[in-house]
Write a protein that binds this DNA or RNA. Structure first.
Lengths: 154, 154
DNA sequence: TCTAAATAGTGAACCTGGTTGTCTATCGTG
DNA sequence: CACGATAGACAACCAGGTTCACTATTTAGA
């Protein structure tokens, strides 16, 4: 295997690919009226989803403590992307829901991601891109949406 | 293109692939006597390199302020992975060098990354993996080592 | 040559996002 | 109906990032 690329290139390229897409997404999102949504906020809003959730549940989804989830929700609330309301069936709970602005950001993100993917397809060819996605599916955990991105660094 | 996978899967898979490798690396690194080196430290040590560097230079390489670079060097120093010494030709500068322990961690990382890549090659086939790497090279910035990973989140 | 600009490092104050521990209010069950 | 489990909030702390300000040294130019 002495002719193989060094192993460290693989994680590097994966990360650069990820970063490239996320940076492009947020540049475009800023252009479309969402300049202050940070990469992490996108993932959090995705995790909140259109049906809403609670801080505890969100923390579990994202793999962080409920307090950390609560703090992030607070900042998202300050930015106008989510709102909280008491659950009438269980007054301990506070349902976190996306505001129209939050839903707009989410919808735009989905469209922009599709466009970015189309850009890659134009460069690589649709078949190569599909192969790339298929290969990645084989070497990554199957339950896609458990990213617990926040804070896994450090 | 209505039959294409949704665009958001691509960044997700790239990130999961990256994360999978990094997590595996650090699990193995911990097993091999380096339990307290964090993912970010690995990138920083890689950026320091075998020849050493300075805080300012390191900051530029990593895309963070010199103060931030300095702080990270401090913690790495506390952990015994780097040491600092004044540059005799320019007494303003302090050269940051990897200690033997730092070099050991770096060497082990390289070997483990190679092994992890071999694992992917066993799953996907060497040709598919090479194709994946080649495709990623085409859609990511060419100058590989400018990751400025620290803090690009948030 | 000598002064002024540029550079290296450091410290302080602050921000974000993470942690754990503690506390209260509410729910649900034995 | 009392007690354990759960939801949320608050505090103290940590890591790593930022900017601003400052000192010490080097370098370049009038």
């Amino acid at each position: 295997m002495s002719n193989d690329p060094p192993g460290f290139e693989l994680p590097l390229r994966l990360f650069l690919g990820f970063r490239t897409l996320i940076d492009a997404l947020h540049a475009e999102l800023a252009r479309q009226g969402h300049p202050d949504v940070r990469p992490m906020h996108g993932f959090v809003m995705q995790a909140i989803g259109v049906d809403g959730t609670t801080a505890v549940e969100l923390g579990r989804t994202l793999g962080v403590s409920k307090q950390a989830a609560g703090k992030t929700v607070e900042t998202l609330e300050r930015l106008g992307y989510v709102e909280r309301a008491r659950d009438p069936r269980d007054t301990r709970r506070k349902i976190v829901r996306l505001t129209p602005r939050g839903l707009d950001a989410l919808a735009r993100s989905a469209r922009i991601f599709d466009e970015l993917r189309a850009g890659w397809a134009a460069t690589l060819g649709e078949d190569r891109l599909r192969a790339l996605e298929a290969d990645l599916r084989r070497v990554t955990p199957h339950d896609a949406f458990r990213l617990d991105i926040p804070g896994w660094f450090g």
